[in-house]
Each structure stands twice: as structure tokens, then as C-alpha cells.
């Protein structure tokens, strides 16, 4: 019956999506992480930092009056305080332990590693 075939095909498709997503997730978690980190607010790169050379300090980023207090500590980076309602950015903890990047969706803030494959010159701040 046609319906049965369609169901089997859908089941295989679902399994394939799950397997592919799991494989890419594992790859992302395990690939070597560059030291260069970008702080992006509302799509604009505000800072490009080499964490291995940064000394401890605080960076405050504002978006429409809402603040995120970003802390650089022991060559690691995290969000300590934020005005966002969900505080996911704080709960994500340090970048070294985070899955890929630190994001504050309400404040449109993003702290991410600069993988060399993505280093197209569109957002270069020296």
C-alpha cells in the first residue's frame, strides 16, 4: 500500500535528520577552538579579542538601554549580569564550557569564537 511506503520513507528521513544533527553537534563540541572571540551586538562586531592575550577586565554592552556585563577572566569569557528576562546568557556560563557560543537573544548579543573558515572580511575590526 502506498501509504505504508510513505510512512516508512518518513521514518527513514526522521532517523537521517536525527543522526545528521547528532553527528554535527558532536563535531562542533569536539573541534579545536580558536582563541579569537568576537562580541557581536545587533549584527555588528564590537570587539575582536584574542583571549590568550587578554588580561582580566569587564566589558559592558548596551542594546536599547539593556545591558550585558561581560567578564574576561583567566583567558575565558562569560556574561555576569544581564537585563534580559530569561538570563540564558548567564546560565550558559563560560565560553570554554559552552556548547558553541554565548547568546543573549533578547539583547541581540552574541559572543562567539572566530573559526578561520568563517573569517570573511565583511566584519573585520582590527
Amino acid at each position: 500500500m502506498n501509504k505504508k511506503k510513505a510512512q516508512t520513507a518518513l521514518m527513514i528521513a526522521a532517523a537521517a535528520i536525527f543522526a545528521a544533527a547528532a553527528a554535527v553537534s558532536v563535531y562542533q563540541l569536539r573541534r579545536t577552538k580558536p582563541n579569537t572571540v568576537k562580541i557581536i551586538s545587533d549584527g555588528k562586531v564590537l570587539y575582536t579579542l584574542d583571549l590568550s592575550r587578554e588580561s582580566d577586565r569587564e566589558i559592558i554592552v548596551e542594546y536599547e538601554g539593556r545591558r550585558n556585563v561581560i567578564v574576561i577572566e583567566n583567558h575565558d569569557i562569560y556574561v555576569r549580569e544581564a537585563d534580559c528576562p530569561d538570563h540564558t546568557c548567564i546560565k550558559m556560563g563560560k565560553l570554554s564550557q559552552s556548547s558553541t557560543q554565548i547568546v543573549c537573544l533578547p539583547n541581540k548579543l552574541m559572543i562567539r569564537r572566530a573559526y578561520s573558515s568563517e573569517e570573511s572580511g565583511t566584519d573585520g575590526t582590527a
Partner: peptide
């Protein structure tokens, strides 16, 4: 999210969301 955050970088979360979503 790509449009709201104005960066394609959020796609990095897609595989994680898919695993949890499935």
C-alpha cells in the same frame, strides 16, 4: 533568529536544537 540577530552565526545552534527537537 538569523533575521532578528542579523547574523547567520546562530545557525550554530541548529544541530543542537534538532537533536533536542527530535
Amino acid at each position: 533568529a538569523v533575521f532578528v540577530m542579523k547574523t547567520a552565526a546562530v545557525i550554530g545552534y541548529y544541530p543542537f536544537l534538532l537533536v533536542i527537537g527530535c
